[in-house]
Amino acid sequence: MRLKEKVKKIIIIIFSIKKINKYKEYKHQKKIIYLLSPLHGNMGDQAIAYATLKFYQEQFSDYKIIEFDRDSIYSEYFAIKNCLNKDDIIVLHGGGNMGNLYMQEEKPRRFIINNFRDNKIISMTQTISFTNDEFGKKEKEKTQQIYNKNKKLILLAREDTSYNEMIKLFTVNVIKVPDIVFYLADTMDSDKNRTLITTCLRSDKESIWKNKKDKFKDRLQSEYNDVFIYDTVINRQVTFKSRIPELNTMWDNFKKSKVVVTDRLHGMIFCVITKTPCIALKSLDHKVVESYKWIKDLDYVELVDDLDYDKLKPIIERFKLKQVNEELGFKYKYYDKLAKTLKNYI
């Protein structure tokens, strides 16, 4: 770590000591401390936060839940540490950011795993991915060393590739379970008045369709009247208070869609929970392809290997007429069992 960063962190930690009594009212309560939740406009991450809170509120109803955003961990460190009891649980926000692609997420997660060793830590459903270069190898080794020192750490892997990588790298408990946003399946009604043909395609570093994306959208708009160009990222901060209204607005747009074409994992998952026909494409890593395995038997979600308009049009035509009413049953199949397993560990 560079000297400037070290000095900055020391200043932040000194400032956090002044907050040491901030949460003393929770000292004698049985609680879950939920750390690293997002304030940014990636609504997939916001849905993970919402589903995580819903899971623990329903499955661990005897615990008080206190949520902290990612950037507060250093400034609130001593205050959090001071209010913890040995039987309290720490829950870490999930996602697709375990690895070296998003170091702004990995570094604070390491900090928590390294500095909170007296409490059970549950890292929610994650995809793990390190680049195959010197930087990736170096960061993988750091992550491996820090995680393996914490014997109370539990990792949730959201697909096969991540599960296999985690059990290879780590000596801690690893559980395979679908992305936590699937916990919301069967909680929403399907809208019969659908009008839109929607694209929800990445424009960030995880996109692999940069050269084909605009061409596909142009063809789509030339042949269909109600094309909606959309994304699961909004350009504004999302607070704890605004999270649910923002998510409901997004899910309403999915419910208005006859079919969605997406390379976003949570674009695909939003389709599943809103009972919206979906054409899914892979992105930079394995998370879409691997997570599709959980839902491969659904007849309204199809994984394709190319963003080619002529190949996708027959699927669009077939899906735009489809009405979806089937129940997924993931809560019973996976999440009730997950809750039981976690309670046994705890």
Results as ranks from 00 to 15, higher is better:
residue 123 S to Y: 02
residue 123 S to C: 12
residue 123 S to H: 04
residue 124 M to Y: 10
residue 124 M to V: 00
residue 125 T to M: 05
residue 126 Q to H: 12
residue 127 T to C: 03
residue 128 I to S: 08
residue 128 I to L: 10
residue 129 S to L: 02
residue 129 S to R: 05
residue 129 S to E: 01
residue 130 F to C: 08
residue 130 F to I: 06
residue 131 T to V: 00
residue 132 N to V: 04
residue 133 D to N: 12
residue 134 E to I: 07
residue 135 F to S: 00
residue 135 F to M: 00
residue 135 F to P: 02
residue 136 G to K: 04
residue 137 K to R: 09
residue 137 K to E: 08
residue 137 K to I: 02
residue 138 K to M: 09
residue 138 K to F: 14
residue 138 K to E: 14
residue 139 E to N: 10
residue 139 E to V: 02
residue 139 E to I: 06
residue 140 K to V: 00
residue 140 K to L: 00
residue 141 E to N: 13
residue 141 E to P: 01
residue 141 E to I: 07
residue 142 K to T: 14
residue 142 K to V: 15
residue 143 T to D: 08
residue 143 T to V: 14
residue 146 I to D: 01
residue 146 I to T: 14
residue 150 N to M: 06
residue 150 N to H: 14
residue 151 K to T: 10
residue 151 K to D: 01
residue 152 K to P: 00
residue 152 K to V: 08
residue 152 K to M: 07
residue 153 L to R: 06
residue 155 L to K: 11
residue 155 L to I: 15
residue 155 L to M: 15
residue 155 L to R: 12
residue 156 L to I: 09
residue 157 A to D: 10
residue 157 A to F: 10
residue 158 R to A: 01
residue 159 E to M: 14
residue 160 D to N: 15
residue 160 D to P: 05
residue 160 D to A: 13
residue 160 D to V: 10
residue 162 S to N: 08
residue 162 S to H: 12
residue 163 Y to F: 15
residue 163 Y to D: 04
residue 164 N to G: 07
residue 165 E to I: 03
residue 165 E to D: 13
residue 165 E to C: 04
residue 166 M to W: 12
residue 167 I to L: 03
